[in-house]
Design a protein around this nucleic acid. Sequence first.
DNA 1: TTGCTCCTCACGTCACGTGAGGTGGC
DNA 2: TTGCTCCTCACGTCACGTGAGGTGGC
Lengths: 154, 154
Amino acid sequence: MRVGEGEIGELSRQRYRIGEVAGLVGTTPRTIRYYEELGLLGAEELRPKGVHRLYSDTDVARLRDIVRLRDLLGLSLDELIGLADAEHARESLRAQWDGPADNRERARIVRESISLVERQVELVRSRQQHLDEFQLELTAKLTQLRRRLAELDS
Amino acid sequence: MRVGEGEIGELSRQRYRIGEVAGLVGTTPRTIRYYEELGLLGAEELRPKGVHRLYSDTDVARLRDIVRLRDLLGLSLDELIGLADAEHARESLRAQWDGPADNRERARIVRESISLVERQVELVRSRQQHLDEFQLELTAKLTQLRRRLAELDS
DNA sequence: TTGCTCCTCACGTCACGTGAGGTGGC
DNA sequence: TTGCTCCTCACGTCACGTGAGGTGGC
């Protein structure tokens, strides 16, 4: 988190306002503020009170992931904090990346990210299974009902 | 809802206590009471205050469906009320079934049930699609991370 | 009779929604 | 300068959780 920078060579250092971000990820400003309060987006960044919040592309990507985890897997925010640490790890990775070349440390961080993403994949799979079962029951119900209807119409 | 019955020929008129039901469907007594308060289980049945609640097999099946809809699709209780009316329709169907033979009315109820179940199937499908997309992104992330790790280890 | 589960308030909590009143940037 | 979006309290709401104190059935 370098301050007072303005170097050349930084592509797409786009900044978004909270309303834009909300629109991009499909949520509300209030929710984003709440997540910041909980520390879900990383350090509140010592923003002086009253000043408008600004978000980067990585912030947007992170929020999108969080919202998806929440909506698709139904995780509580407490559980989300654990999984969102994957992004935290990746950020510290990026910070490391430009620093001194400690490949051991870099590998450790990458492995940590991998295991977190693997856990997410597992959760998704489990969800899909439950949905598959549910769908089977529903279609069974449907054929049953249609059979009954056919009997009535005859 | 006949009272004071004890006829022969009624199979499995099993009655469950609220704690048993909670265990069977994977929720808590408090939640079941709350759903009854909202009318999700049909008429509160004029139960005198303080008397223990008793549930039938169909109540259990209904609750199981509600809980699944809630957990897998993330529906609000307001939305659930609409979908739970499928069960309501089926109950009135059953009531009709033993009554005078009005096949037209029966067919109407069955068609209504069908369309409600079809809506549920649609919701499930849409969920599955989103999960599929999410999983694709996650596995893409994974191969990316694994590649990076391989580079580091070399 | 003794436990265990049930009952009804009723307050607490989590994850935000919704104004109220005011300030800031294109 | 005028709107529009942003800001911070702060109270409301939805979907329950969690005791407190008491009653009921095997």
